[in-house]
Design a protein around this nucleic acid. Structure first.
Lengths: 225, 225
DNA sequence: AAATAAAATTAGCCAAGACTAATTTTATTT
DNA sequence: AAATAAAATTAGTCTTGGCTAATTTTATTT
């Protein structure tokens, strides 16, 4: 079954809310994420239900069916593979790839994703640190621990970034933070929860709580050594 | 100025008719090529005229403006570059790439085509032997001499194929004909203009006139030696 | 429990881009 | 030149996927 551009975008949005473990996926939650009117969302919920990609129940909200889950994972698979391609092969910067991949992910061809996967050497993570779903729709567990949740004095490395917004990524570039960069959380300012951090052993820098909540970290870092 | 999917497809169609040196590009000619209703074409001609991509005059038919010509060439540029990518990098067959490139060509990003061009090593021709327009919209002159126009006993090599239809390309694969394959036109059957040819020095084969009209050749072949 | 606020839904509208059917214009024959 | 055929155009319809405004349902306060 083939899906329209809009259907795919809704599916991807619902999938993202599902991965974020939102307990009840409501029309308003979808509308907020897509910047659409709730009335439009209600229409599309009906379409996707008719195609048995989701179920909708007032009490339970929107849930992906087995088919919907698989199809959504494959869209995300394509998106993330194209991001790897754009960065590694075409030399785009970190902050430029998301929007282009947003278009490329909708290209319809049954073998394209798998060929691209092979061509790229079967990458496991995309340039933002997000795991790439496999051809069967299965995906490694995304990183979930944020820098803002750590205890002071913890050393970690950046595993992924939550926000793919260009401003945020450019800020990271300026701070010289990328995937894998070691960070030490020095102190949490109790007044506003700002974070004092040391990036890659350099002098301390202060960042906001919001910033910390968008950096996903791996704190098993020091234990490996 | 950004164009919709439909606008781009019409523009490409008009560009193709222009390259084919059709003296007067009429709504019906466009409708026939796209498989659309002439009424729909008339609507779109108005839209493209409003965007100053074309001019339309009952007497002269549709003509591309300078902007329209450039934009059309850039769409074709993207199409042909993606075809090279799909064949060379992802291992697709000759007959599979056209339809996928048909989607990829519409990806909007100002530097994508140029980056892809560089990544592919600035190819001059696509896998079907068609010249790839450059970033400025200029393009090498397409091959125009067909196998069906040659005199008997002429030796040539296949320079390009006119039809990108999958059946035709698969037939070529079966005959072991690709870009660069040497062909000798042995005889023209006067009854129905069938062509007796020798492919790459092998035993004679007979093909139809229609077939010959879809093979573009380079007959300066023997002169080089 | 009643009042209020928020969320969901329905109804109706709009634009793009396709269509059909009917009409007008242009070309071609006889 | 008149008759006919073909092409172009207009008018009106349909679908997709948005929208607003109004209404109903559900949650939250008081």
């Amino acid at each position: 079954m083939i899906h329209t551009l809009s259907e795919e975008n809704y599916l991807k949005c619902i999938y993202r809310l599902y991965l974020d473990k939102v307990r009840k996926i409501t029309p308003t939650a979808i509308a907020d994420m897509l910047g659409n009117n709730p009335a439009s969302v209600v229409d599309m919920i009906r379409k996707l239900s008719d195609k048995t990609l989701i179920t909708y129940d007032k009490k339970k909200g929107v849930e992906l069916t087995v088919i919907g889950l698989k199809d959504a994972a494959l869209i995300v698979r394509r998106h993330r593979l194209w991001e790897v391609f754009l960065l590694e092969k075409l030399g785009y910067d970190w902050d430029e790839i998301h929007d282009i991949a947003e278009e490329l992910e909708h290209i319809k061809d049954s073998t394209l994703a798998d060929r691209l996967d092979k061509f790229l050497g079967f990458p496991e993570y995309d340039p933002h640190g997000d795991p790439i779903p496999q051809a069967n729709g299965k995906m490694a567990k995304p990183y979930s621990l944020t820098l803002a949740e750590l205890k002071p004095s913890t050393i970690c490395r950046v595993a992924a970034v939550r926000d793919t917004n260009s401003d945020f990524l450019q800020y990271l570039l300026k701070l010289d933070i990328g995937i894998g960069t070691p960070i030490k959380l020095v102190e949490i300012i109790t007044f506003d929860n700002s974070l004092v951090i040391s990036i890659n052993g350099k002098e301390n820098t202060t960042v906001s709580q919001k910033f910390g909540q968008n950096i996903l970290v791996d704190d098993s870092f020091s234990e490996d050594a």
